[in-house]
Write a protein that binds this DNA or RNA. Structure first.
Lengths: 202, 202, 202, 202
DNA sequence: GGTTAACCGAGACGGTACGTCATGTCTTGCA
DNA sequence: TGCAAGACATGACGTACCGTCTCGGTTAACC
């Protein structure tokens, strides 16, 4: 039987120090050179404390990212709904473009993706804790658009989100093209053309 | 001045052995556990021979992948052109889905992506040597469709490819959903709806 | 500031295993082919554990030799004193000749000398920890002989020891001649002739 | 059958360059860090040219030292013979002390000794080519002293040389004491006392 | 005087060992 | 008992040299 640590004894101070140190180091030295030892040293923590509470480096990175998101407004806040889906989506997509350009985010997100690509378990956790809640907020806005007759009523919303976000995400991840506000707008235009109700013109 | 090895003296036998060993090991043990030492041992080669000709582990993986592609028919062969773009694209997308499901490809592609995400230089090389030629073949087929009036004449073909492939690629990379032939068909349907000429119905 | 390991945490088990392995390997493969890796492997120890506590291969060899001497009786035991310095010195010199002929000693002593020749710091340590205590024991016997009127009262005892031992040592080190009990006796004879009190005949 | 190189084709220019480079490098970086590659690079010579003509690093060092001695006057010149052996020996011993203090000699001699200690074959070659001729010259002077009645007629001259030189050599090799002209004189005094004819006083 | 075999500088090769770094486990002593 | 500290066995890193092996280019002896 594997010995499990007792979570009630867990030091919150150490936990925060570790996650903060992890974030800082990812930004400073990049994912490839990120080490458990450096995190422990920076956090003023014993290595064992990291190994006790996280199962892998990916898990630490994941939690570091999760903690970042929890403090932010994203997870809780719904998308804007002015009644015009085009306006709202363009605003959201432009915001996403801006976020990807933020150097403070770049390191951690790339690190997280690197881990997710090679770790199915982490990928599942990522979907459940991070991606799905965010996606649900977006789907809520799209359902509103469906009710308003701005989107096909029978549209597959998972596919819709992929259509909208995957090109943007891919450009950023593989650096295969520039991320500009215009590009965000164009994606929304194409998306709406693909998803508009039949018999309707933009 | 950095000393450069003389390429004319390079052992082709060693080069092939290294690339083959790299491919085999990625499939067998995965990217995370791939080591230069193991590649050298498997290839029956000194470590220095790897370090002499490749600047990083990513560069080896890239070349291993490149060599694989060069032997295959992909780079040289154009896409099918039956006259019906929908038929042709669905065939191509289904083939892509099948390729992603091939366990022999899975390891190397994930490894390559892992390196590319964190190495801009490698990403550029990847675009130039691998992605761009493949994209050009696809664009050729799309231009044919434009001439046939099946696609908007003013469509941005880079965007078109992203629209078509990015959702598929993202699902595979992040394991965010199942990759089925039906999904391939659906992507083509949505793509054609978004890209069809104005005033036209599918 | 250089980080210093904490000696109180040192594993005595590892220390002994390393020194023993070093001695064994010197005897088996000789000094020239002695490697840190082989010592670590033989001792069942990580290389870092060697590098943590010893600054050079020579330092390990020195300690291995020192540990050997500490367990033996040599350092603590005084020379025999029968009252006749000739008898006593011949016994000691013959014992030294026998010791040099012991194949178990040959390897380590040659290795130690090799390091000492090229490393002044090690040479100083050697004098302080090994040579000086042994020399002192010998000088004690010579002082006794001086009191007994068998040796010149004003003889330089450092020089005396050199006169007695250096020829023997040199023959062994450079293999410039045979080491026999007769040779030992002859050296004592010559030594006593050179060092006897003035006005006295042997 | 092992292929033997043809000595008539040997490049004298390369041979000299190698020996010179070896000497320089020993003085500059010391014996421990002396490498064949560095010698070849310094000499502007292919590594194979060294391996073709010398069987080991020790052999190169030996030849480098030998070449040095051949250019000097030592091997050919006999010792001075003023008729007074004490005067002559003190002059020779003082010269030896001075030589050992010459930094240009220090490196190569230590290197040579290091190799000789661990390589019996090289030791034999050293005796034959270098030590024996030098010793013979010294013995010639001692024989002259015997004829003059300044030394015991039945003295063992090999032992005599050891008595005279081994203490000096040992002090230098192991750095066990200072090498001064006074020390040289003292050694000669003691030597003469040990070796003088019976019934005689200095 | 043309041929040809050997040496030459150069340096790639398969290896071994280096000394360093990070891993994940374990132990010690403090709070 | 959780923790900071850090020693430990393990093993990969990237580098330095080893001694062997081609590769062209002289170079010198022999036809």
């Amino acid at each position: 039987m594997v010995k499990q640590p007792n979570p009630t004894r867990r030091s919150e101070r150490s936990r925060q120090a570790i996650l903060t140190a992890a974030r800082e180091l990812i930004s400073e030295v990049g994912y490839a050179k990120l080490t458990i030892e450096a995190i422990a040293a920076r956090a003023g923590v014993g290595k064992q404390t990291i190994y006790r509470w996280w199962s892998s480096k990916g898990a630490v990175i994941f939690d570091a990212f999760l903690a970042l998101s929890e403090t932010g407004p994203e997870l809780s806040t719904a998308l804007p709904d002015t009644g015009d889906v085009e306006t709202d989506l363009k605003a959201v997509m432009r915001a996403t473009v801006a976020e990807f350009a933020d150097p403070a985010f770049e390191g951690p997100i790339r690190a997280l993706n690197t881990e997710i690509i090679n770790d199915p378990a982490l990928a599942a956790q990522y979907r459940e804790k991070l991606a799905d809640p965010l996606d649900e907020a977006k789907k809520t806005r799209l359902r509103s658009a469906q009710r308003a007759g701005q989107l096909a009523a029978d549209a597959d919303l998972d596919l819709a989100l992929e259509l909208l976000y995957a090109p943007l995400y891919q450009r950023w991840l593989l650096r295969s093209g520039p991320l500009t506000p215009q590009y965000a707008d164009t994606l929304v235009d194409v998306f709406l053309k693909a998803m508009r109700p039949e018999g309707r013109r933009s």
